[in-house]
Computed example of a mutant assay.
Amino acid sequence: MAEFWRSRALPHLEARRSCQENPCYRPHAHDAFSVGLIDEGRSVLSGCLDGPVRLQPGDVVVIPAGQVHACNPEHGAWRYQMVHMDQGWALALTGQEPCSALFVGISVLRRHDLRSRIVEMTDAIFADETRPRIEATIAAMLHELEAVPPARLVVTDLTDAASQLLTRLFPVMERLRLDESNPALSELAGLAGMSTFQLVRAMRRATGLSPLAWRQNARIVQARHLLRDGHPIAETAQVLGFADQSHFHRVFRTHVGATPGVYRG
C-alpha cells in the first residue's frame, strides 16, 4: 500500500507514505534529494559501500540524487514515509556547498529526536501548506540534519575516479537514454572506447548499475515526471519505448513500489 502527494505550491516536492510486506524494490536511483523515516518494522538498505544496513523504527535515511539503493522489508510489515525534492533547491535552503555530507552520499542517522522534524515535513506536504510554510519546515529539518555529528551508520560517496568515469561514459548514457530499443553492448562499448567487459564494469563502478539496469532506471525516472504531469499511463509506456503496458507496469512497480495508476493518482 502506498499513497503519494505532490505539493501544488512547489511541484517538485513529492511525499509518500508506504506499508510493504514483501520485497518490492530492485536497485534504483532518483533524480531528486530524498529524506525518509522508518515508522514501523525492520528493513534492509542495500547499495552502501560497507554492505547492507539493517534499519529499525526511528532511523532517518538521506539519499542524494543519483545514488543507487534499494530498501526492502526484512520480516513482516514495514512502514515508512519519504519526501523527494529538487536537490538544487534543497542546497539553496541550507546555504551549503554541494560537498556537504548530506549531498555526497547515502546516510543513515539513528537519532530519534529527528523523527518529529521528518513527520512535520511530510505532514506539511500532505496538508498542501503554503510555500513559505513548507520552505520553513524543510529548511529547519535540513539544518537539523546538517547539525548531526558526523558519526553516521554509513556514508556512500561518489569518488573522484567514478566522477571521471561518468564523463567518459556520457555518450553511452545518452544513447541508453534516447534509444527506443536496447542498444547492443558492443555498440555501447565502441562509443566509450572500451571492451564490453570493461563497459559493464565501468558502468557499475560509476553508477552502481549495469547498462541495461541504468536504462530502465532512467526510463522510470522520466515516467514519474510524465505521470505527475498528467500523461495517460498507456501513452507514457509508448513514449518511453516499453513493449506494452504490462511490461511498463512490471518495471515501474519494481522501481517505485507502486503501480503507475497508484502513483499517478
Rank of each mutant, 00 (worst) to 15 (best):
34 S>T: 15
22 N>Q: 14
161 A>C: 06
172 V>H: 03
210 S>C: 05
2 A>V: 14
118 I>M: 13
73 P>M: 01
230 G>Q: 01
215 R>H: 00
107 S>Y: 02
29 A>E: 05
142 L>F: 04
265 G>M: 10
145 L>Q: 04
1 M>Y: 05
237 A>R: 08
228 R>Y: 00
16 R>C: 11
257 G>V: 09
127 A>W: 00
6 R>F: 01
173 M>R: 15
174 E>Q: 15
157 D>C: 13
39 D>V: 15
23 P>M: 03
46 S>Q: 12
94 T>D: 03
138 I>L: 11
97 E>D: 15
263 Y>G: 08
35 V>H: 02
12 H>L: 01
207 T>F: 05
218 A>L: 14
171 P>W: 00
41 G>L: 08
151 A>Q: 12
7 S>K: 01
6 R>E: 07
55 L>M: 09
182 N>T: 15
53 V>M: 02
193 G>H: 02
83 V>A: 09
31 D>S: 10
131 R>S: 10
151 A>W: 08
37 L>S: 07
154 V>E: 04
190 G>K: 06
82 M>Q: 15
116 S>H: 10
235 E>S: 14
249 H>R: 12
136 A>D: 09
179 D>A: 12
216 Q>W: 04
217 N>E: 08
13 L>C: 02
161 A>S: 13
103 F>T: 08
3 E>Y: 04
236 T>Q: 02
227 L>D: 02
245 Q>V: 15
245 Q>G: 10
265 G>E: 12
161 A>K: 11
224 R>C: 12
256 V>F: 00
5 W>P: 02
142 L>D: 04
160 D>L: 14
157 D>T: 15
131 R>N: 03
189 A>F: 00
70 A>R: 09
152 R>M: 11
59 D>I: 09
242 F>I: 09
165 L>H: 06
70 A>W: 05
126 F>V: 06
101 A>P: 12
142 L>K: 00
36 G>M: 09
199 L>K: 05
228 R>H: 08
241 G>K: 05
233 I>S: 00
202 A>T: 02
178 L>N: 12
60 V>R: 07
138 I>T: 13
157 D>W: 09
155 V>R: 14
220 I>F: 01
188 L>A: 06
127 A>M: 08
99 C>T: 14
205 R>K: 14
238 Q>N: 12
224 R>L: 06
124 A>V: 07
221 V>H: 06
190 G>Q: 08
219 R>W: 01
68 V>Y: 05
12 H>E: 09
57 P>I: 01
152 R>Q: 10
185 L>V: 10
172 V>S: 04
6 R>G: 07
138 I>W: 02
